[in-house]
Computed example of a mutant assay.
Amino acid sequence: MTKKKKEKADIEDIVKDQEETLVDQEEAISKEAVDSDSQTPVEEASEDDKGEGNEAQDLKAEVQNLNDRYLRLNAEFQNYRKRVEKEKTDIFKYGNEKLIIEMLPIMDNFERALSSFEEDHAEDKVLSGVKMIKKSLDDFFEKNGVKKIEAVNTPFDPDKHHAVMTEAVEGVEGETVVAVFQEGYTLGDKVIRPSMVKVSS
């Protein structure tokens, strides 16, 4: 046998031995893994059960916490929705408040003019025309939910009346409106201008 052939044979033997060693190691590792899986100590299983129990409790607590947060958020949302609905209703209900307030002085002037005409016995046609305009304004106010505050001979109400004078009046109880200097008005259930009044003392 030549030297090269001998070296080749030696190398092949070494490779074969290494392959056999690797196969043996793989078989040993596989057997050890199977043996390890087949062993289920009672103590280890008990610890696993405890761990699973704690995990279940943690999950239950987390679910409860999320449920509480949902209920709070839902309550806040319901309150927000009610508030928005009320604001929308108020916008529709009182959206023309500024227009009405700006028209109140016109009504005041007509009422003053009517008083002057009636006192001075002015021409019937002029008086009739002013009354027609006044009625138109009255209809406009009624259509838009504007009402005059009834004040004379009613108890003084600071929410509806603005007292600019007090006077002792015989036969009239105190804190009673006895005269109106300027009419007050409501828009819906909101006072947009209180009546300017004289109150008995």
Score class of each variant (00 low, 15 high):
residue 49 D to N: 08
residue 129 G to S: 08
residue 38 S to A: 07
residue 130 V to K: 02
residue 33 A to L: 14
residue 39 Q to H: 14
residue 86 K to H: 01
residue 139 D to Y: 01
residue 137 L to M: 15
residue 78 Q to S: 02
residue 85 E to A: 15
residue 51 G to W: 05
residue 89 T to G: 06
residue 130 V to H: 02
residue 101 I to P: 00
residue 107 M to K: 09
residue 93 K to Y: 06
residue 130 V to M: 08
residue 100 I to A: 00
residue 97 E to W: 07
residue 39 Q to G: 04
residue 36 S to W: 03
residue 98 K to S: 14
residue 58 D to Q: 14
residue 129 G to L: 07
residue 37 D to R: 14
residue 137 L to C: 09
residue 83 R to D: 13
residue 100 I to K: 04
residue 114 L to N: 06
residue 105 P to F: 12
residue 122 A to D: 02
residue 84 V to C: 12
residue 34 V to W: 05
residue 40 T to F: 02
residue 92 F to M: 09
residue 126 V to C: 01
residue 138 D to A: 11
residue 91 I to Y: 05
residue 116 S to I: 14
residue 90 D to E: 15
residue 38 S to G: 11
residue 96 N to I: 10
residue 38 S to T: 10
residue 139 D to K: 07
residue 67 N to E: 15
residue 43 E to I: 02
residue 137 L to Y: 09
residue 80 Y to E: 14
residue 52 E to K: 04
residue 73 L to V: 07
residue 115 S to I: 02
residue 109 N to V: 02
residue 47 E to A: 11
residue 32 E to K: 06
residue 46 S to W: 07
residue 127 L to Q: 08
residue 73 L to R: 12
residue 86 K to F: 03
residue 115 S to A: 15
residue 122 A to E: 09
residue 114 L to C: 03
residue 43 E to W: 13
residue 128 S to F: 08
residue 38 S to Q: 10
residue 48 D to E: 06
residue 127 L to W: 00
residue 74 N to R: 11
residue 112 R to N: 13
residue 43 E to K: 07
residue 61 A to V: 00
residue 121 H to D: 15
residue 53 G to A: 08
residue 76 E to A: 04
residue 48 D to T: 06
residue 81 R to N: 08
residue 48 D to K: 03
residue 87 E to M: 07
residue 51 G to V: 10
residue 58 D to F: 09
residue 107 M to N: 08
residue 41 P to D: 12
residue 86 K to P: 01
residue 121 H to T: 12
residue 36 S to Y: 10
residue 38 S to D: 15
residue 134 K to D: 09
residue 48 D to I: 10
residue 123 E to W: 01
residue 117 F to T: 06
residue 54 N to A: 06
residue 35 D to R: 13
